[in-house]
Amino acid sequence: MPDLIAKPALGHAPLTLAGTTLTEEPQARITAIAPFPGQTDAVARALGMAFPAPGQVVESGGRSLVWAGRDIAFLIGDAPTVALAASVTDQSDAWVTLALRGPQAVAALARLVSLDLRRVQAGQCFRTGLNHMPLVLIVEDADRFRLMTFRSMAQTAWHEVQDALEKVAARAALTA
């Protein structure tokens, strides 16, 4: 009996415009951990990682714990192996992760995201919207970002980021 073939959300090749590259990231293991009321500290101890404060990413041992909402975080990397006083769900297949990296990344995001991105730095993340789509925005550094949105919306997300990049590039070409 043949095994089922896994498909990426998009399978798009990277796109580079104005020195800025949009890529579809390979699917990672994502585990949503939502501690039961009052159990956040216990969960953190069991995980061996600090539970991230709002807007923070905690890195440890090759795994990152990304704050993803009120009392919920996404563990990116190996799934927890210990029992947690938390709701634990596998979200690996629920999200598509795009990366936007380059000098025009912030300018493109200014067309997609309502956040103030003036002084963002590594270790930050945001729950917000990518236009009308849900978004987890992870800051790698000031001009490198990962964008997680619903997998079913991957085509629209790609299209809208591409569209923003094209417009930014057309403007950049005027002064180049």
Binding site: P37, S87, T89, A94
Partner: peptide, 15 residues
Amino acid sequence: CADWQVRFTSVTEGW
């Protein structure tokens, strides 16, 4: 009932 020991997470997209 914020103190009830229950949490819910949408998994629509995952399956």
